[in-house]
């Protein structure tokens, strides 16, 4: 089985609001599946449908080859999830929270396993501390520990780095990579922090306003040999007029004020620079960009193009 999750024509409406519309995607087994979208794009609604929190208006969800509607418990037994904020029981200790979720997952766990898990998420020395005193990062790590306690095949993390400081973000990133690389887990990670996603995701789904924008492996989507050039000039009209007389016109993608975006192969960048000098175009900044963020923005924001 190559796809751990298969979603077909999934829709969810809340009265007149279409939160998710006709969404289909497949999550390859063993991947870190980045689920991207701006706030309100429908990521959380989709994840909640995967976790049976919300009932779809339409569509089918198959996980581990089983229909989620028919066998929810068999499926959920093998999923660990942290959905949105890691809201656990504040009046319980770290250890008690993990032990409680182990029981809810219908497994018996030895104390040692729980301690190992707390150690792995860096909370071993906090086992008897009430969650109330935990920082956001610690809560997130404890949330992940509760998601991992029953050793699930599939881990779903909804906005796992939200509200974390840089160190916290790095910790979570490393943990996610460790889960995939060392433990062979499949992870679905949703986020709107795209730079983070770029660092860890192997596959990507971008949704906007409840609809799929694009899906595929990160290598295919980002075309690593290609680069986007962000050119800032003092007179954009004049510069564009001069460029239009050249073959570089074909590389032009769009204009945002005095910023002009071009797309070209990485090894063409020096020739492009020579052309600018040759045509006496006053360049304030020339910066090759190659990030998911640009891609994401490109796909999800309305831009002013010429």
């Amino acid at each position: 089985m190559s796809d751990i999750i298969q979603v077909k024509n999934l829709s969810k409406s809340f009265k007149d609001v279409h939160a998710v519309q006709d969404l289909s995607f497949k999550v390859p087994t063993g991947s870190i599946y980045g689920f991207l979208g701006q706030n309100g794009a429908g990521k959380s609604t989709t994840i909640r449908m995967l976790m049976t929190l919300i009932k779809p208006t339409n569509g089918d969800i198959t996980i581990f080859g089983q229909d989620l509607r028919k066998n929810p418990n068999d499926i959920l037994r093998n999923i660990g999830a942290v959905i949105e904020r890691p809201d656990l029981y504040k009046y319980l200790t770290a250890y008690e929270n993990v032990a409680l979720f182990a029981k809810l997952s219908r497994i018996k766990v030895e104390r040692k396993s729980i301690m190992d898990l707390l150690d792995r998420v860096g909370l071993a020395s906090w086992e008897n501390s009430s969650m109330q005193i935990f920082s956001q990062g610690m809560r997130q790590r404890l949330g992940i520990a509760t998601a991992l306690v029953h050793n699930p095949e599939l881990i779903i993390l909804d906005e796992p780095v939200n509200g974390l400081d840089p160190q916290g973000i790095a910790d979570i990133r490393n943990l996610i990579l460790h889960l995939k690389n060392d433990m062979g887990k499949t992870l679905v990670v949703s986020s709107h922090l795209l730079s983070e996603m770029e660092m860890i995701a192997t596959d990507l789904l971008i949704i906007n306003k409840g609809k799929k924008v694009i899906e595929g492996s990160i290598n295919t989507l980002l075309k690593p040999e290609m680069a986007q050039i962000e050119l800032i000039v003092d007179h954009a009209d004049e510069a564009l007029a001069k460029i239009s007389t050249t073959a570089w016109q074909q590389s032009f993608k769009k204009r945002i004020g005095n910023t002009l975006i071009f797309e070209m192969n990485k090894n063409q960048i020096s020739d492009f620079n020579v052309m600018l000098v040759h045509h006496n175009i006053h360049v304030l900044s020339l910066r090759p960009k190659h990030s998911l963020e640009d891609y994401f923005l490109e796909q999800t924001t309305e831009t002013v193009s010429q």
Binding site: R48, L53, L76, R77, I79, A81, K90
Partner: peptide
């Protein structure tokens, strides 16, 4: 209200 309900429902319990 606490948010723990979504964690419970995501577990294999009816």
């Amino acid at each position: 209200g606490m948010g723990t309900l979504r964690f419970m429902i995501g577990k294999p319990i009816s």
